[in-house]
């Protein structure tokens, strides 16, 4: 199991890093750390409790290496997994809906197919309906309604099916 000093060390490392969340699990012991506006100490206390109940079993020697691995994994998890970006084919204003009072064409979590309209880009009163061109799920919306977008600017991230 983790020693208090080791947990402190991990916290210090996480504090300095861009990691927001950290989970460590081994033989019934689990440690999870989460960055928030709350002081890290509060998180720390919660973490200590389960550790106190665990039996001494895990060799401490492995901890630093496990620590090293873990610091990388959350980095991958903190970004949204996507494998396709829908980009703007032209300069213009982005419209998220067909008219101001309507709902947006898509939002995070929307399922799309090749011909799903995801937004409209307007330049010089030409309205270009942008289609997803892939089948999958919108995992991230990178633009706001009314925003000016550049040629080639990523608009949406999609996890393909």
């Amino acid at each position: 199991m983790l020693k208090i000093e080791e947990i402190r060390e991990i916290i210090a490392l996480i504090d300095q890093s861009s990691i927001n969340e950290f989970t460590y699990e081994t033989e019934g012991t689990s440690v999870s750390l989460k960055k928030s506006s709350e002081p890290t100490v509060a998180q720390h206390e919660k973490i200590i409790a389960p550790i106190d109940h665990t039996q001494v079993a895990t060799p401490t020697v492995q901890q630093p290496s496990a620590n090293g691995e873990q610091t990388e994994q959350p980095v991958v998890e903190s970004e949204v997994a996507y494998d396709y970006e829908i980009v703007s084919p032209m300069v213009g204003t982005l419209y998220a809906a067909s008219s101001p009072e309507k709902d947006a064409f898509v939002s995070q979590g929307s399922k799309v197919t090749n011909d799903t309209v995801v937004c409209i880009v307007e330049a010089m009163k030409l309205f270009n309906e942008i289609e997803a061109e892939v089948t999958g799920e919108i995992v991230e919306v990178l633009v706001e309604d009314g925003e000016l977008v550049e040629y080639g600017q990523p608009l949406f991230r999609v996890k393909k099916n």
Binding site: V87, M124, K125, L126, F127, E131, E133
Partner: peptide, 30 residues
């Protein structure tokens, strides 16, 4: 009136609405 309204004596006489279906590098139709 930029880009495409037609004015006569400062008043609008005609409007144009252009809509396009396109892929990244190819226009299907306008």
């Amino acid at each position: 009136k930029w880009p495409n309204d037609i004015l006569i004596n400062n008043k609008k006489t005609a409007g144009i609405l252009t809509e396009m279906q396109a892929e990244q590098d190819r226009i299907q139709y306008v």
